[in-house]
Design a protein around this nucleic acid. Structure first.
Lengths: 351, 351
DNA sequence: TTGTATGCGTTATCAG
DNA sequence: CTGATAACGCATACAA
């Protein structure tokens, strides 16, 4: 693969045939005699011939590789998704090229240029928290690059999207807190510009409203970098603790934020009331064993990866009309920790 | 990138130049007049020209992409390593193609063929637990494919290797148990064939010996699939609990095994004595907040990825003689949880 | 300073 | 049934 580089030409020369004959024999073309075929096949096997995929790509104008752009690979949710993506890609003979934005628009843009210039056949992406301008992505999409969004989607772009039922997940989470006696529930969330933020906060608010708890916007904190900067979550919690009326529980709307809050509560770096409730979206391994949180909303990350990849491959291989886009909504799972109800009665209503 | 595909030819035609002139102008060749250069550059920018990297690869016989093969992406240790790999690759203009073996030799082989036939410029790999025959890898290496091993290395192959100080990590871990009063310390480990297993068990045994604790081979359990199969770890623990003399602590030699044991201990799916000690290698987020384990041996996964990639790029770009191979040994970190000493005095020595 | 021709490895088209 | 040739997009040795 580096030095030797056996090519069709070598085979042709050795066997006294033309390259076209060899090429056809290798592809088992009907217009080649069985004897020649066998001859070629056997020799090719013997000298361990492998077609050069780069030459193939150049000819076929496809690379059989897909790009994956996420904010951070070392985030359980995303690594689980990539796991699912790889598994489908592998089964279909596609390579997976990964890149991370680290929640930075600049890096996202650069990686995007990089990936597309690398001639990927399609893209699976979850946009960064910083991204507000999606024109570049839109342009790519319009130029014909098959794109599938997952998790953090972009509504304006017409293509497949794979998300979880964020509204319901957040509703369930909030409900769980409410039914455990919490009333003043804060939300630590990603920037408002993200689709998941909107959906999750909507679910959170609906759950509160349905239980006659007034929504207090001062209880909602936005972390501009999605918790990539450690201090950010601390600041959010600190601000909450400085409120005239303390919250009695926190709903963290994303994996990174949940683990951030968890760490704060457990390490007591900031002094937080002992009975502070916590629930959050999280796919981090073992989080469900921790105490807090009260419970965890888990996303079917692996499945999301699988679904997204299947859709992308359909797009690439145009198995379905490129205009017939759909949004797949998978359901989240509320992992309930029975033993963790810290606040039990708390019948004194407030607000 | 899909439909339009602006090529050098288009520019040449539009500007009434030859393709070679355009090519040279774009590469800022000294033999092109400033005016022509400016003309070409500007037009190229205007119509948003990007060279086709596939054509380039075919010509230059390099793809500017590196392959990464690990057993499982959704394992914190590996995803952190990939994070490091991506970061260095990104800075050097390389793409990262990932694949996972899922601890299966077959998948490893297939992926290897896949990656190499994809014309990667180099490979970073941590072999699967199942792999016992490294001839294919050796062959690749001898054919000239730059390879860097990390974590689970292959001694027989002469190339760069990046590992952590497994011996010391295991020694420290075992010592920590010993100094907390544990005496009958079991080991739940990966297959013996892995380099890390040998090194870690050696450290474990040395720590015991140094403290005059007899080594009992029946206390060492090997998980053939590295904990990929859930029941495997349970079986190991069950077997330990059936021993005539119960262990009083477990040393788990790898991330997946540590979390496996942890889950067993916490969920009490198997009834394990309450004061069972546990320590293990783990890079899983938040593991250090759990209680057990007693402590965690953390590997500098991100740094390993960085170091491995730097070495690989040196190999690819032959910045150093290809014969001058080295093994980088990074040090592990023992994260001590002060408050967790379950067994304190236990002065009654045994065995 | 610019243009022409060739090759990278493969397949498709067209002859024979 | 088989072979010569062009083409994919680019870079470069060689001409001019």
């Amino acid at each position: 693969m580096k030095f030797e580089a056996v090519t069709i030409k070598d085979i042709a020369k050795a066997l006294g045939l033309s390259t076209s004959t060899v090429s056809r024999a290798l592809r088992d073309s009907y217009e080649i005699s069985p004897e020649t075929k066998k001859l070629v096949m056997e020799y090719a096997g013997k000298i361990n011939y492998h077609p050069n995929p780069i030459a193939l790509s150049l000819k076929e104008r496809r690379s059989r590789s897909i790009g994956v752009l996420v904010c951070e690979i070392a985030n359980s949710f995303f690594s689980q998704t990539i796991n699912g993506i790889e598994s489908i890609a592998y089964n279909n003979g596609y390579n997976v090229i990964i890149a991370q934005s680290r929640e930075s628009v600049d890096r996202e843009m650069l990686n995007l240029q990089y990936l597309t210039s690398r001639s990927i056949d399609g893209l699976i992406i979850s946009v960064s928290t910083e991204t507000k301008d999606f024109s570049y992505l839109k342009e790519l999409s319009q130029k014909g690059l098959p794109i599938v969004f997952f998790d953090r989607i972009v509504d304006e772009i017409e293509t497949h999207k794979v998300i979880v039922d964020n509204y319901k997940g957040a509703y369930d989470a909030t409900l769980h807190l409410v039914s455990n006696g919490y009333r003043r529930i804060a939300a630590v969330s990603n920037p408002e510009s993200l689709s998941i933020t909107k959906e999750r906060l909507a679910g959170y608010k609906a759950a509160l409203t349905d239980h006659h708890i007034e929504i207090d916007e001062s209880l909602i904190k936005y972390c501009q970098h999605g918790g990539m900067i450690v201090a950010e979550v601390e600041d959010a919690v600190n601000e909450l603790l400085r409120l005239p009326q303390l919250p009695d529980a926190i709903f963290a709307t994303a994996d990174k934020l949940t683990t951030g809050c968890l760490r704060i509560l457990k390490t007591k770096k900031i002094s937080v009331p002992d009975d502070m409730g916590l629930i959050g979206f999280s796919n981090t391994d073992l989080t469900e064993l921790l105490n807090p949180p009260l419970s965890i909303i888990k996303q079917p990350a692996f499945e999301m990866g699988e679904v997204a990849t299947n859709l992308l491959l359909q797009l690439i291989e145009s198995k379905r009309p490129v205009t017939d886009f759909e949004t797949r909504i998978l359901s989240t799972e509320l992992l309930i920790r029975g033993s963790t109800k810290k606040v039990k009665p708390k019948t004194t209503e407030m607000a």
